[in-house]
Amino acid sequence: MRYLFRTLAELYPDLGPHLEQGIAVAIDDVIYSNAWLEPLEPDSEAYILPQIGGGKSAA
């Protein structure tokens, strides 16, 4: 995943700062808030989205 981030940042320099902070990644159907170390399978779908804070502090 980290490799993907690096490659993206090289291809799209404007994305760099956004990738550094405040994002989450959905790999297939699981959302990771800190995804650098997550392995990506060849057929995995990775989707970068804004980090979700959340409201109600609860169960």
Binding site: G53, G54, G55, K56, A58
Partner: peptide
């Protein structure tokens, strides 16, 4: 992280 986003349980 804070108790938010229905994360705690």
């Amino acid at each position: 992280f804070i108790s938010a986003g229905s994360r705690t349980t």
